[in-house]
Amino acid sequence: MAKTRPVRGATLNGESRRFNLPERQADGDWLDDRETVDEGEPVLRTTVTVEHPRTIITRNQSPDIGFDRSINPYRGCEHGCIYCFARPSHAYHDLSPGLDFETRLFAKPDAPTLLRAELGKRGYVCEPIAFGTNTDPYQPIEKDWRITRGCIEVLAETCHPLTITTKSDRVTRDLDLLAPMAARGLAAVMISVTSLNPRVSMTVEPRAPHPEKRLAAVRRLTEAGIPTYVSLSPIIPAITDHEMEHLMERAAEAGARGTFFLPVRLPHEVAPLFRAWLDTHFPDRAGKVMSIIQSIRGGRDNDPNFHTRFRGQGAWAELLRTRFHIAAKRFGLDGERIRLRTDLFRPPAGPQGELF
């Protein structure tokens, strides 16, 4: 395993053949303006490109996802989680799912305005909107761009329910909006904590906040009356799976209402990126990790099929589920998922909203 903190998650900027993406060499400086790391090698600077989409609510009809709409204020994610299933989406921009995904980001500053317009359309039917389903809404650039906050302001104004999934304690900066919404049954948050070992965490998720900060955020959110859950996803066999019960115990101590987990998924370009990362940081167990993953995924690096892609199959998957259910009952984390209210929604004021 690497002895120093990696500055990025992916170890390469590999080729994506699905969209004829040529392999490219990354360049630039690091976000914090340091020009070199300890070894004297150049590091990467994060760049942000403004994107102007025509709509901001994304719809899905997946039979194994518990929401039908979501908002992604950003494309790409600086947290650099090596396992991120959203990495392949960068290939649509002729960019690499590797280092480009972590360093060449897109921001959508028009999102709150677009959201207001879409909520005001005739015939809009209110259902919870999910944030953090593709890339993290509270990644570092949210501090300056505040697009996620702008969207929450619109939802608070219209009494529209929302859910947030993040691995950042930055979500607590919006307590002033989320707490009143939660009091009316309109908001819930899920914090992702995949490892309590700082060295493992900084290798798997190099630019995400320290796990203790995330657990502190769980406590703050809970104390503010916001229903808060902890995601252990993804569980990486032979790297993080042994922490499951301890993670759940800490989640319960922090006041979480429940927990959730998925075995690691490696769709499309994520698989070769993950293999290269294993060879760099865990060469002593790379073969073992991939062998177990393939046993969970029907002999492949990834299972893309509905209904089985999130659960996994085989003895390892069943063992994880058994351990999880036993621990959930032991720590009181097996309660019902919260149901958010939709009956309070009122279309936004304005030329469109006044029609209702």
Score class of each variant (00 low, 15 high):
residue 215 L to Q: 01
residue 172 T to H: 00
residue 292 I to L: 12
residue 60 N to I: 12
residue 61 Q to D: 09
residue 152 I to N: 05
residue 32 D to Q: 07
residue 333 L to G: 05
residue 166 T to H: 01
residue 343 D to P: 05
residue 47 T to D: 11
residue 234 P to D: 08
residue 31 L to V: 11
residue 46 T to S: 07
residue 350 G to I: 04
residue 213 K to C: 10
residue 349 A to W: 03
residue 257 R to S: 12
residue 6 P to D: 03
residue 290 M to D: 10
residue 75 R to W: 09
residue 295 S to M: 03
residue 188 A to T: 11
residue 288 K to S: 14
residue 264 V to W: 09
residue 280 T to F: 14
residue 7 V to R: 12
residue 262 L to H: 11
residue 178 L to A: 00
residue 144 D to C: 08
residue 105 L to W: 02
residue 341 R to F: 06
residue 73 P to F: 00
residue 89 S to I: 09
residue 71 I to D: 02
residue 235 I to S: 05
residue 211 P to I: 04
residue 279 D to A: 15
residue 240 T to C: 06
residue 31 L to F: 11
residue 197 N to I: 13
residue 243 E to Q: 15
residue 340 L to Y: 06
residue 323 R to S: 06
residue 312 G to Q: 11
residue 186 L to R: 07
residue 45 R to L: 04
residue 91 A to K: 05
residue 123 G to N: 06
residue 249 E to D: 13
residue 44 L to N: 07
residue 141 I to Q: 13
residue 204 V to L: 15
residue 25 Q to N: 09
residue 156 A to L: 14
residue 158 T to L: 07
residue 352 Q to W: 06
residue 17 R to K: 14
residue 70 S to E: 14
residue 64 D to S: 09
residue 330 R to Y: 08
residue 306 F to T: 14
residue 155 L to E: 03
residue 268 H to A: 15
residue 160 H to Y: 05
residue 62 S to K: 09
residue 262 L to G: 06
residue 315 A to Y: 12
